[in-house]
Design a protein around this nucleic acid. Structure first.
Lengths: 125, 125
DNA sequence: CAGCATCCTTTATGATACTG
DNA sequence: CAGTATCATAAAGGATGCTG
């Protein structure tokens, strides 16, 4: 099983990666990115719509994630007014849409774990 | 699309999760876990075998990841000698094996990104 | 509405030396 | 061989107030 990307480290956007997992986790890692993306699968959403969907996320964290995802080309941002109140919409790019099956697998596995762990907890205590 | 787990936050091992993604990323998040797991898919491995497979990981980081994965029931540890030199083997549990398709999807997507990004970089500069 | 700026705390990660 | 222990930095995350 050769997981290495070629013989030497691979560079993407000035960052060094040693395997495909490195690359994937660079784009998806952290507490919020996958959750934000999950809510953008359905349809484009405004800043506060995403925020309402995600309990506990702060504006700062949401801003950081959206910028990072935009920089990576996973989502795109559209601004509709110049003057406040602003209207901004975020949506997946075509590149971002290639993540949908992966995101679905992640959520499915998460739900599986909830059931699995609850089962263990109930039978052992 | 209802991603929330029931109406209230769900608790697993004393931690609070609001959606399946939360749960999944709790188990897989961070820089090393998915990489470590990737090398354990093939077969059980000893501490230093894993370390040799992963450039740059320190003993400390590997120790932390292995302990965390073991605590989560994703891998199991077998010790074969009491006296040094020790022989310890790590392998996926049955629960851990449920992650294999997900891990494969992650690596595949990572490799896809490498190609995609290189393409973009070459055509734009 | 959709953020930015600032200060702060907590985690994650890293380098190095040492041990049963 | 398979780790620990210690010291250090970096990155992530959070709270609050302010702004175009």
């Amino acid at each position: 099983m050769n997981n290495n990307i070629g013989l030497l480290p691979n560079y993407v956007d000035g960052l060094k990666f040693h395997c495909g997992m490195d690359v994937a986790m660079h784009h998806l890692g952290g507490k919020w990115k996958t959750v934000v993306l999950w809510y953008l699968i359905e349809n484009k959403k405004r800043f506060n719509e995403i925020k309402k969907n995600i309990p506990n996320i702060t504006e700062k964290m949401l801003t950081i994630q959206l910028k990072s995802l935009e920089k990576d080309g996973i989502i795109k941002k559209e601004v509709f007014n110049i003057k406040p109140p602003l209207k901004v919409e975020y949506s997946l790019t075509d590149f971002g849409k290639t993540l949908i099956p992966l995101l679905e697998s992640l959520v499915d596995w998460g739900h599986f774990v909830v059931k699995e762990k609850s089962y263990v907890m109930h039978t052992k205590k």
